[in-house]
């Protein structure tokens, strides 16, 4: 695996050094490392000749640009009204019990982080969750557990 510094350099090469490239660069780091470490933010600031505070300020604005360590697989269960009506609480409870973590926490083995999200745009097929970039609509607690089990196997 690339070091953070090398990854940043690679992303800067690919996207360019202008301010407009900041989002794709930060997104690229999250894609690989699941969050933005202090090292990553400092390195981006240096490469783009921006202040570290400016880079952190931008990153911290966006829900998907995490600045705290996250697990290999990030689960985001939609909590907005229709998913609420269709039983997102049961799905979250099932996941929380199975993974033995609360919403916002990461498992000890760093395989999973459980989060909630605002409307994911699947209101007609709720409850729904994202695992990383993949979407899983029409959930039941049972289905959600089966999906997570598969990810658990892959993440060994």
């Amino acid at each position: 695996m690339l070091t953070t510094e090398a990854l940043v350099k690679e992303l800067v090469e690919k996207n360019g050094r202008s301010r407009n490239s900041l989002m794709p660069i930060l997104q690229g780091i999250v894609q690989k490392e699941h969050y933005l470490s202090e090292e990553a933010l400092l390195s981006v600031a240096k490469e783009l000749d921006l202040s570290a505070a400016d880079v952190y300020g931008t990153a911290s604005f966006y829900t998907f640009l995490d600045t705290v360590p996250r697990g290999k697989n990030i689960i985001r269960v939609c909590k907005t009204i229709t998913c609420h009506m269709k039983g997102k609480d049961e799905v979250i409870n099932a996941l929380s019990n199975a993974l033995k973590i609360k919403v916002g926490e990461t498992t000890h083995d760093k395989k999973f982080t459980l989060l909630t999200a605002n409307c994911l745009g699947w209101c007609h097929k709720g409850p729904v969750m994202l695992v990383n970039d993949e979407v899983y609509p029409d959930l039941t607690p049972q289905k959600a557990l089966e999906i997570i089990e598969e990810y658990g196997k892959e993440a060994k």
Binding site: T80, I81, T82, N118, C119, G121, C123, H124
Partner: peptide, 11 residues
């Protein structure tokens, strides 16, 4: 950037 709760047509 379709984000309004209850909207999913753009997807």
């Amino acid at each position: 950037d379709e984000g309004e709760p209850g909207t999913f047509k753009d997807r």
